[in-house]
Design a protein around this nucleic acid. Structure first.
Lengths: 111, 111
DNA sequence: CTAGTGTGCAACCAACTGATTGCACAGGGG
DNA sequence: CCCCTGTGCAATCAGTTGGTTGCACACTAG
């Protein structure tokens, strides 16, 4: 449960692979290699990382290995966003319980 | 307006700085440098990158430069999540308009 | 102007990483 | 068994990058 999900999604190729798996359904590294301008091994490495952070999962079917998006993959991202957001709101409430048009926090409410 | 926001949030130090700005309000690079085990210049570089992707903004006050979180900072992340999610749902509808308990896309609905 | 504090920029460095190539291993069909 | 297809692992490499140090520049106070 680490936030390395952001690091995983930080790489453009990896994010594209992830999106492709989401749109196109389960696919093998070889299939994905045909869609992207990188080698199968590069794709495989990306898939390994995506799997490590829990964004995708493997499914072996005979000779081939399909990768598919994990249903709750982006839950962690959403939770982080929510957590950060609520932290903002908390601080804003401490500063100005009535309005919230300003995110700056150095000045005092009375000043 | 690029998705480099993910890359920016991918680095742990940068993400921590961002969270700290969110919780503690506007702060200078020097102040942040006291909170993290890296030099002020390192912090400054991170802030520059965070600013470049639109996550934080600068505010000059006399001699010092405060950085603060941009209100709509995480909107891009949320939009991306929503977009990917809706793409999943679309594909799932094409496969099985009634149920959605499976994200794998290789099998046919009649099989 | 001078002193002091704070910021910005440039050079530099080690570590990481995205990508490649080569080869060995696993499974299905003749 | 052999052949073919597909996957996995190791070594390697160049580019990126997070971090440091050093120094120049900007603003405020006396």
């Amino acid at each position: 449960m680490s936030h390395d999900v952001f690091a995983a999604l930080g790489d453009p190729t990896r994010r594209a692979i992830f999106e492709q798996l989401g749109q196109g359904g389960a696919q093998t590294a070889s299939q994905l290699a045909d869609l992207f301008p990188v080698s199968r091994q590069a794709i495989s490495k990306h898939l390994g990382l995506l799997e490590a952070v829990g964004l995708v999962e493997r499914r072996r079917i005979g000779n081939r290995v399909d990768y598919l998006v994990v249903e709750a993959a982006l839950a962690e991202v959403e939770q982080w966003v929510r957590r950060v957001r609520s932290a903002w709101d908390e601080r804003l409430d401490r500063i100005d319980p009535n309005g919230r048009a300003n995110l700056s926090g150095s000045q005092s409410p009375t000043g």
